[in-house]
Simulated scan of single mutants.
Amino acid sequence: MAEKQEQPEHNLPLEGEGQSKELQRNKRMKCFAYVLAFAVFQTGVILIFVLVFLKIRTPKFRLHSATFENFNVTASSFQMRMNAELDVKNANFGPYKFDNSSITFFYRGAQVGNGFISKASARFRSTKKFNVTIDLSSTKLPSSAELGSDLKSGILPLTSHSTLNGKVEQMKEKENGEAALLGDGKSFNHGGCEAP
């Protein structure tokens, strides 16, 4: 019975056992640090992917060049045909598909011509070029001294306006509506054939 009453010995950790537990703790902390660093790296990669590749940019729509034919210019009126080369620059990582539209030309705020733009698609990260024929005429304009002086000088200031409504398709599922605008002013020398 004396054996039963003996006090149990306290289990004191041995010196080697404490070092191995410390080594295991250090290994766990190192593993946790690696997992955390990998998670931060993956988050950064995903964030860069979303901000660079999936960001929808509005396509640029502009009048690239124009040539003129069938000139009929008098001291107070003009009538001519314009062959305009338009382009849509798509900087997105998906095709931009736009609908039918029109382009309108103005002389000092008054409409002098209108052209039809048929629906098409600009491939991803490329420029789609197409031609539009527009008949320009001043027959609907009131007679003014400005028109006569502009025609006399050989420079005809025209402005244009057009809107292309379409969608950018990315990753075959995501579609967003975008509108590309054309609104610029150009002065055309009707003494020559090329637009500046």
Score class of each variant (00 low, 15 high):
residue 54 L to R: 04
residue 126 S to F: 00
residue 57 R to H: 15
residue 116 F to W: 11
residue 94 G to V: 02
residue 183 G to Q: 15
residue 110 A to M: 15
residue 56 I to H: 14
residue 94 G to P: 02
residue 167 K to F: 08
residue 183 G to M: 14
residue 68 F to T: 08
residue 40 V to N: 00
residue 115 G to V: 04
residue 166 G to M: 06
residue 109 G to Q: 04
residue 139 T to Y: 05
residue 193 C to K: 10
residue 160 S to N: 10
residue 55 K to H: 14
residue 160 S to L: 07
residue 4 K to Q: 12
residue 93 F to P: 00
residue 85 E to R: 15
residue 151 L to R: 06
residue 132 V to A: 10
residue 149 S to Y: 10
residue 167 K to G: 02
residue 139 T to L: 07
residue 191 G to V: 05
residue 65 S to W: 07
residue 22 E to C: 07
residue 13 P to K: 03
residue 160 S to K: 02
residue 107 Y to W: 04
residue 57 R to E: 15
residue 23 L to Q: 11
residue 65 S to M: 04
residue 12 L to M: 06
residue 187 S to H: 07
residue 102 S to A: 12
residue 170 Q to P: 04
residue 84 A to C: 01
residue 187 S to G: 12
residue 125 R to Q: 12
residue 92 N to F: 11
residue 6 E to W: 03
residue 186 K to D: 03
residue 82 M to K: 04
residue 141 L to I: 01
residue 23 L to F: 13
residue 161 H to M: 12
residue 183 G to Y: 13
residue 49 F to Y: 14
residue 6 E to T: 11
residue 180 A to D: 01
residue 21 K to H: 07
residue 102 S to E: 11
residue 30 K to A: 15
residue 178 E to L: 15
residue 29 M to D: 10
residue 9 E to N: 07
residue 176 N to C: 08
residue 120 A to R: 08
residue 84 A to E: 01
residue 142 P to N: 14
residue 105 F to V: 03
residue 47 L to M: 06
residue 188 F to W: 10
residue 106 F to E: 00
residue 135 D to E: 13
residue 113 G to V: 01
residue 187 S to F: 11
residue 128 K to N: 08
residue 132 V to D: 09
residue 58 T to P: 00
residue 86 L to S: 09
residue 43 T to D: 04
residue 13 P to S: 02
residue 193 C to H: 09
residue 170 Q to G: 00
residue 20 S to Q: 12
residue 113 G to Q: 01
residue 182 L to R: 01
residue 144 S to H: 06
residue 98 F to K: 03
residue 58 T to A: 10
residue 45 V to K: 02
residue 118 S to A: 11
residue 108 R to S: 08
residue 131 N to L: 10
residue 133 T to Q: 04
residue 140 K to D: 15
residue 91 A to C: 06
residue 50 V to H: 05
residue 75 A to L: 09
residue 51 L to S: 13
residue 101 S to D: 00
residue 24 Q to A: 14
residue 174 K to Y: 15
residue 85 E to M: 12
residue 167 K to V: 08
residue 137 S to G: 06
residue 119 K to S: 13
residue 32 F to C: 11
residue 73 V to R: 05
residue 55 K to F: 06
residue 158 L to D: 00
residue 186 K to S: 06
residue 14 L to Q: 09
residue 176 N to Q: 14
